[in-house]
Design a protein around this nucleic acid. Structure first.
Lengths: 152, 152
DNA sequence: ATAAATGCAAATCTTTTGCCATCTC
DNA sequence: GAGATGGCAAAAGATTTGCATTTAT
C-alpha cells in the first residue's frame, strides 16, 4: 500500500468508480486525491479547506454527498474516534488506530492479527473489526506524568 | 457485573460521585439509573425520553451536561458505533461490541483478550481498547444471504 | 452559606435535503 | 441527450453555552 503512488491510487479509484457506475467528475477526483494523499483521517471540514484551494467553487455539501456516496460504494471508510465528528480514511486495507486521548493524534496500526479469542454469538457473520487503541502518545505521556505527580 | 442489582449499582454510583466531589442530585440519580438498567447503549435523546416520564422537568441540556460530567469523571463510557450519534454505556468493565451493520443492534462482548500482537510505537501508553466487531447478526445474516444470491 | 447543578432558550456546529444548472458518459 | 452530479442555501439534528434560579452539602 505504501509503495503505491498517488497516481496509482487515482487509477484504482477511477476503475472502481466505473465499476460502481459513478461518474468520475473533477470534484470527485479532487476530493479523493485529498483523502488518498494523507493518513491524518481528516474531517469533512478539513477536506473542504484543503480542496477549496484547488477548486474554490467546490462546496461543503458536495463533500458530504460524496463522502456518503464513496462510503456506501466501499471506496472509503469511516473512522470513529470517540466523540468526534466524522473522520475519513481512504486506506481500505484492514488496519487499526492508535488514538492519543490528549492531543487527538491518530496513527495507523497495520493489522496485527487482532481478533477476539473466545466465542462470538452463534451465527454472527463478521465483516470487519474496528479497533481503537486509546492512550497517550509518547509526547503527551511524558507531559502528563509531570501533571500526575502533582495530583499525588 | 450481571449479578449486581440496580440498587448495588446505584450505591456504587453514589460512592463514586462522592469520591469525585459530584453532588448526588435527584436528576443524576434518575439519569444514571436509566443508563445502568439497560444494555442498549442509548443516545442522549433516548435517555431523555425515558427519564422525562419520571421527571418531566428534566431537560435535555441537563442530560448532556451530566453525560459529559460523568464521562470525564470516568463514571460512564462513550461507545462509538460508526457514524451514529453519541451512544452511552454504564458498563465500565472492559468489554467490546458486536455491531450488526444491518439492524444496528449492539451486543456486549465480554472482554476476551483482544490485543494487538506485534509492536506498538515506542512510548505509547495504552489506556484501553475500543473494539467493534462489525458484521451481520444471525437474523440479518440469513435474510441477506437470500438477497445476495439474487446479485449473483 | 456556598458552590455546584438545573432549566430554559439561544447559539453553534454538523450533516442532510431540495432544486435548478451543469457535467459525464 | 439523459441521467447523474454540483452549487447554494435552507432545514434539520446534535451539542454547547449563558444565565438566573434552585439544590446539595
Amino acid at each position: 500500500m505504501d509503495r503505491q503512488t498517488i497516481e496509482d491510487r487515482m487509477q484504482t479509484f477511477r476503475r472502481r468508480c466505473a465499476e460502481k457506475g459513478l461518474a468520475y467528475t473533477h470534484q470527485r477526483q479532487v476530493i479523493y486525491r485529498a483523502l488518498a494523499s494523507t493518513n491524518t483521517h481528516p474531517t469533512p471540514e478539513a477536506i473542504y479547506d484543503k480542496v477549496k484551494k484547488q477548486m474554490p467553487s467546490l462546496s461543503l455539501g458536495t463533500i458530504y454527498k460524496n463522502i456518503r456516496t464513496f462510503t456506501e460504494a466501499g471506496l472509503l471508510q469511516e473512522v470513529n474516534l470517540l466523540h468526534e465528528s466524522l473522520r475519513l480514511d481512504a486506506n481500505l486495507e484492514s488496519h487499526h488506530h492508535l488514538v492519543c486521548v490528549e492531543c487527538k493524534s491518530v496513527t495507523d496500526l497495520p493489522e496485527q492479527e487482532i481478533r477476539p479469542r473466545g466465542e462470538l454469538p452463534a451465527g454472527f457473520e463478521v465483516q470487519r473489526y474496528n479497533v481503537e487503541v486509546l492512550g497517550l502518545c509518547s509526547n503527551c505521556s511524558s507531559k502528563s506524568k509531570t501533571k500526575r505527580s502533582n495530583h499525588g
